[in-house]
């Protein structure tokens, strides 16, 4: 089993790595590139804790091979803030106490950003269905949904 050389872009920066053919993108991010913000909650695409964007499309990085990342543009939680400036979603999650344990939070933020990029003015129902693939066991989702809606309102006003 020989390793595959992959050249990709992660959060705007060029990245290269070698990976096994059966290694997932999540494994690569966490174990080879030290980007541990993406979490493995299930490894089967059912919890969304590993959410990343690939060419601006929201996906589970546990359901994608590292080798598939070649030439793609990957976005992870580590790229959400700009320098010391948190993304509005990050601020609103803090203001609304939209996290308790925080392990699902990176996935929710990446997914919520993809939602607002795609639909800047979502209804509560649209937020809930878009985020249905992100499991949170602590909050009952209430404060998460409020934080996303509040972010959308703020960004729209800006």
């Amino acid at each position: 089993m020989s390793q595959i050389h992959v050249s990709t872009t992660i959060n705007g920066d060029p990245a290269e790595f070698l990976c096994e053919p059966d290694e997932t993108l999540l494994d690569v991010l966490r174990d080879r590139l030290g980007l541990t913000g993406s979490k493995e909650g299930c490894g089967s695409g059912d919890c969304g804790a590993c959410s990343v964007t690939v060419d601006d499309r929201l996906v589970c990085s546990c359901l994608m091979l590292g080798a598939e990342a070649d030439g793609r543009d990957i976005g992870t939680i580590e790229g959400l803030a700009e320098g010391e400036h948190l993304h509005p979603l990050q601020r609103k999650f803090l203001d609304h106490a939209a996290l308790q344990c925080g392990v699902c939070t990176p996935g929710f933020l990446v997914a919520a950003k993809a939602l607002l990029d795609h639909n800047p003015d979502p209804s509560e129902t649209e937020v809930r269905y878009w985020l249905a693939g992100n499991l949170c066991r602590c909050t009952g989702y209430d404060k998460i949904v409020r934080a996303v809606l509040d972010t959308a309102a703020e960004m729209k006003g800006a």
Binding site: T36, E40, T76, I77, L86, Q90, F93, L94, G102, P106
Partner: peptide, 21 residues
């Protein structure tokens, strides 16, 4: 009152270190 939690920024930026991190 409802201030921001001290571990908050680490948790929204992916920096917080969980068991497998």
């Amino acid at each position: 009152s409802r201030p921001v939690r001290p571990d908050g920024v680490d948790k929204v930026t992916g920096r917080a270190r969980f068991g497998a991190d």
